[in-house]
């Protein structure tokens, strides 16, 4: 039996089992590059970065070094060595140009270094390669652009996400906020409208509609929305969120008569 490094005792039991398995296999095939990579990943994910680095560097000597480059990139990203991380990721991409996670990490490095343009560009590559990205990644790209007040580009990314994933409230709500931020309440209203059916025209949605309609001077439509929202809320059991909505509906209704 191989000696288990002292740090293993601290590992999460799931990790502990995995480490034991890897160690068992390393006994049989002590020069297997994959096994060193696997153990490096387990350490890296468990925050044991020195042990991870030792295993990954060892793995480099046991086969094609480039096969270890992605994990070395991830590890160096985790320890904050962005430049080293970037070099490793790029090495890996030269060999495997269609590997989306490498672009995800390149995007994080660029974002964390303040280079939003580059981060968005890497995310775009990721979106091209990944069949169904997590909606939050479109949000991440849009937020970077929004921070730089590049609303139009931010909106374009949210729309791109919805062209891929379908219209979803996580992205469309952000787009509504962006339309408002850039002074386009009509477009905000049009976007919010698209969410109505999938949200079952919820009272929250109706009050948001009413607020925009009021902003655009459509008082009658707003009044009807507020009324129907209040009617629905009156029939639903009270939750803190619904009590807040009731108050909001009252405030909006009061605003109608000013």
């Amino acid at each position: 039996m191989l000696l288990v490094p002292a740090s293993v005792a601290l590992a999460h039991p799931g990790q502990h089992d995995q480490l034991q398995q890897v160690n068992r296999h390393l006994e049989q095939t002590p020069t297997d590059q994959d096994l060193y990579i696997q153990r490096g990943i387990i350490y890296s994910e468990g925050g044991q970065y020195d042990a991870a680095l030792a295993d990954l560097l060892q793995a480099q000597t046991l086969g094609e070094p480039v096969l270890v480059a992605f994990q070395l990139g991830v590890l160096h990203y985790r320890t904050g060595d962005f430049e080293v991380a970037r070099d490793y990721l790029q090495q890996y991409l030269q060999r495997f140009p269609n590997y989306p996670p490498a672009y995800d990490y390149l995007a994080r490095i660029a974002r964390d270094s303040g280079d939003y343009d580059l981060a968005v560009a890497h995310l775009q590559t990721y979106f091209r390669l990944q069949e169904r990205p997590n909606p939050g990644l479109y949000l991440a790209a849009a937020r970077m652009l929004e921070e730089r007040r590049r609303y139009q580009e931010a909106l374009a990314i949210l729309d791109q996400g919805q062209a891929t994933l379908g219209v979803v409230p996580q992205l469309q709500r952000q787009a509504v906020a962006l339309e408002r931020a850039r002074g386009q309440p009509e477009l905000a209203l049009a976007r919010l409208q698209t969410l109505g059916p999938m949200l079952g025209e919820s009272p929250a949605w109706r009050l948001d509609m009413a607020e925009l309609q009021l902003e655009l001077g459509h008082r009658d439509r707003a009044a009807a929305m507020i009324r129907s929202a209040r009617e629905t809320l009156a029939q639903q059991r009270p939750t803190p969120a619904r009590l807040d909505l009731q108050q909001r509906a009252e405030a909006l209704a009061a605003g109608l008569h000013q």
């Binding site: 909606p135 939050g136 949000l139 937020r143 409230p169 996580q170 919820s202 929250a204």
Partner: peptide, 13 residues
């Protein structure tokens, strides 16, 4: 953080 916030805003809706 971005994926979490997207999931949370979906959950609220």
């Amino acid at each position: 953080p971005d994926q979490l916030s997207a999931m949370k805003s979906w959950l609220i809706e």
